[in-house]
């Protein structure tokens, strides 16, 4: 018999179950995969099978319908996945996630410019053999 003053917590149900499980994903950029890449960022001989997670926005976590409905304000159109309770930092979180494509493109463009400058500087300094 359940004591009404101490109700038993409900078990995880979709979409929470799905979104929680996707954080552990090894194959598509879950948190574990990203943390591992961060840890090995400075190691030249590290296992780089997951290279690209940092520079990519690909992740089951972001593609989850729950996250999509929350970030892009689909509360009215898809009640099945939309959040019922909005976290206090929601507006800041949405700004962060919505701005990601522009931020990533800008940073990657800067990295390419730096790489190009490094190459041309090396050629000017007579390091052409390096690039043959």
């Amino acid at each position: 018999m359940v004591d009404p003053e101490f109700p038993t917590p409900k078990i995880l149900q979709p979409p929470f179950k799905d979104i929680v499980e996707s954080t552990f994903s090894l194959s598509s950029g879950g948190i574990g995969c990203l943390l591992h890449e961060i840890q090995t960022l400075d190691l030249p001989d590290a296992n780089k099978w997951e290279t690209g997670e940092i520079t990519s926005l690909r992740s089951n976590l972001f593609a989850n319908p729950y996250a999509q409905d929350w970030v892009y304000d689909h509360e009215q159109s898809n009640a099945q996945y939309a959040p019922q309770h909005i976290v206090p930092f929601s507006s800041q979180h949405k700004l962060l996630i919505r701005g990601a494509p522009n931020y990533f493109e800008e940073m990657k463009r800067k990295m390419k410019d730096l790489s190009f400058k490094h190459t041309t500087d090396s050629l000017k300094n007579g390091d052409a053999d390096t690039y043959r």
Partner: peptide, 28 residues
Amino acid sequence: MWSLASYKLAMMIAVLDQTTYDASKRGC
């Protein structure tokens, strides 16, 4: 690369923050 890494990690923490808050308020 560190800047990109911190940005992506922040995005993941943001989604987790919303999910865990919602779950907590729903009673699960």
